[in-house]
Amino acid sequence: MGKLTGKVAFITGASKGIGEGIAKVYAKYGAKVILAARSNRIEEIAENLRANGYEAIAVRMDVSNKGDIERAVECGIKAFGKIDILVNNAGVCKLGKFLEMSEEDRDFHIDVNIKGVWNTTKAILPYLIKNNYGKIVITSSVTGDMVADPGETAYAMTKAALVGFTKSLAVELAQYKINVNAICPGYVLTPMAEGIAKQSDEKSPDKVLKGIADAVPLKRLAEPEEIGELAAFLGSDESNYITGTQIVIDGGSTLPETISVGI
């Protein structure tokens, strides 16, 4: 019996990176998982999970499309009869200097990182309230609320907004025994991190990733499954007295006062 046995989890952005890592860990702990993403790859991930004896379905969904979300939630309810846990993980990051960033790129971040979380939560919340129980886990970031690098204005703004959303929603939903918490990862070895590295240095992205890892006190990037372990804790009854919290999981990357002073 795993800590999530009997629970049904709806996970967005589950086709790669952190979302895929969370899906695998949730399944390992006994949850029935609904994998939601735009990519066809979620079909492959769901099939692999089923081949290993887990219960999983894939639903194609663009979190920036409200109709897509509603249809995906209906599919999940039809398959498993309920949803206990929502993991709002889908997110995007496109680097760009503030004065050079187009309104389209700004709105791309807002539509996915903020509206996607808003609309997915709104679609699933009635099921949690009906059961007088639920867990909402939101993937924010250390970027925005705590730290930032040049070119991350849109990403940082939207990820910081999710912390405010988490805290306010947690207060509002406490009466229904619904916990709302945010995970704030630092650098994780994902396709997004690799993409950002390529945007920074198209010719030597591996050098960028190594430089990032060297600046982290634990000297490495996190694996997606490590974020999944924290998400599983927050999705389980072990976290029943934790709500409205942002939990940092960054290998200590936000600890150094500077990277140039020391003994």
Rank of each mutant, 00 (worst) to 15 (best):
R106H: 13
M146W: 12
A232W: 03
S260Y: 11
T258F: 12
G244S: 14
A36I: 07
A170E: 13
T243D: 09
M146G: 08
T166N: 04
I69C: 07
I183N: 02
A161W: 10
S239I: 00
A23I: 06
V137D: 01
K159I: 03
K135I: 00
A154H: 05
D62P: 07
P126E: 09
K219E: 15
E20T: 02
S204E: 11
E43P: 08
I124W: 01
E152V: 07
L125T: 05
E103V: 04
N119C: 14
S64F: 03
E100L: 11
E225C: 12
R71N: 13
I212H: 03
L128F: 02
M61W: 07
N113V: 06
Q246W: 07
G53S: 01
I22R: 01
A160T: 03
K97T: 15
L234M: 02
D145M: 11
G116Q: 13
A72E: 09
G164Y: 07
L49M: 05
I249C: 15
G96E: 06
G81I: 04
D145Y: 09
D201C: 07
G53L: 01
A90E: 00
S204I: 15
Y176M: 10
L99R: 13
I138H: 10
K219G: 09
T120S: 08
L162K: 10
E194Y: 03
I85P: 00
Q246C: 14
K97E: 15
K130T: 06
K159F: 12
Y133A: 02
T12R: 01
E44D: 15
V8L: 07
R60K: 11
I34W: 02
G67D: 14
I57C: 10
I85D: 00
G262V: 07
R60Y: 14
G19L: 10
N65M: 15
G91K: 07
C184Q: 12
G252L: 03
L95Y: 02
A154K: 10
A231G: 10
R106I: 10
M61P: 05
S140G: 03
D250R: 13
V261G: 06
S253Y: 14
S200F: 09
K198R: 15
I136V: 09
A37N: 01
I249A: 11
I57V: 07
T190S: 01
